[in-house]
Simulated scan of single mutants.
Amino acid sequence: MLKGIDPRLNAEVLHALRAMGHGDVVVIADTNFPSDQVARHTIYGELLRMDNLTSAEAANAILSVLPLDDFVEDHAARMQVVDAPDDLPDVQKEVQSEIDAALGAPRAMIGVERFDFYDRAREAYAVIQTGERRFYGCFYFRKGVIPPEG
């Protein structure tokens, strides 16, 4: 245990988040996502896990240490529902709430078509698989910067 660090963040996840640079992407995946296969193509090259957490719980923990890139439109993205790209399932609404809280203001995620999401995920820095069992619990966050003090 460390003071000030969310205990849901394990050592491997913390290592990857710390190693990421500005603009790098981390994928938060549900249990149905082909996480292991996709993770092998990422920069990190291994699947990370946050088992027994919903996507929103994992997002809450990750966003407690990861700044989002507020200079770009795709600071955060969600996998679109097939044949209903504008639908927002509850799991996506919950993660959106975590993003809004982290940013201090509402800022919508972009929607990404399912197969395009898979392609983008292969180019990510890392993939973190959660215990989320609801469909469309797949997201990515683009790392921002922490400004200098003063």
Rank of each mutant, 00 (worst) to 15 (best):
A61K: 05
P106A: 08
I28W: 05
V127M: 06
G21V: 05
E132M: 05
R49K: 13
I146Q: 10
L103K: 07
V25N: 11
F117K: 13
I99C: 02
A29F: 01
D6N: 15
K143S: 12
K3E: 11
F117Y: 08
D6F: 04
A121L: 10
V38R: 01
A84V: 07
R114D: 12
R78P: 03
A105P: 02
L48H: 00
M109H: 10
G111R: 12
A56D: 09
G111P: 11
L68S: 14
N32W: 02
R49L: 09
C138P: 00
D24I: 06
R120V: 08
G23A: 11
L2R: 15
D69N: 15
D74E: 14
L66R: 06
E73P: 10
D69Q: 06
D36N: 15
D119N: 14
A19H: 10
L53V: 08
Y136W: 07
P148M: 05
C138S: 15
A105F: 14
P7C: 01
A11D: 14
D100W: 05
F33P: 09
I146H: 06
K143F: 05
A108M: 08
R49Y: 05
A11K: 12
R134Y: 04
L2F: 13
Y140V: 07
L53Y: 08
E113K: 11
D36W: 03
H41G: 04
D36M: 10
A124K: 05
D86P: 03
I128Q: 01
D6P: 10
Y140T: 03
M1E: 12
D24V: 08
K143D: 08
G23Y: 06
E73M: 11
E123G: 06
V26G: 00
A61D: 07
I128W: 03
E113M: 07
S97R: 14
T130L: 01
R122D: 07
R40P: 01
E132S: 10
L17I: 02
Y125K: 03
E98H: 05
A58G: 01
M109R: 13
L63W: 04
V27Y: 10
E132A: 04
A61S: 15
Q92L: 08
V38P: 01
S64P: 10
L68Y: 08
A11T: 12
R78Y: 06
D70F: 00
L103F: 08
E123W: 00
A105G: 06
S97I: 00
G104N: 12
R122E: 14
R114S: 14
P106Q: 07
E132G: 01
L53A: 08
R107E: 07
L53E: 09
G131K: 06
V82S: 12
A11M: 09
H41F: 07
N10G: 08
L48G: 02
Y44Q: 06
T31D: 11
K93P: 01
L103N: 04
A121D: 09
I99K: 01
P106V: 03
E73D: 15
D24F: 05
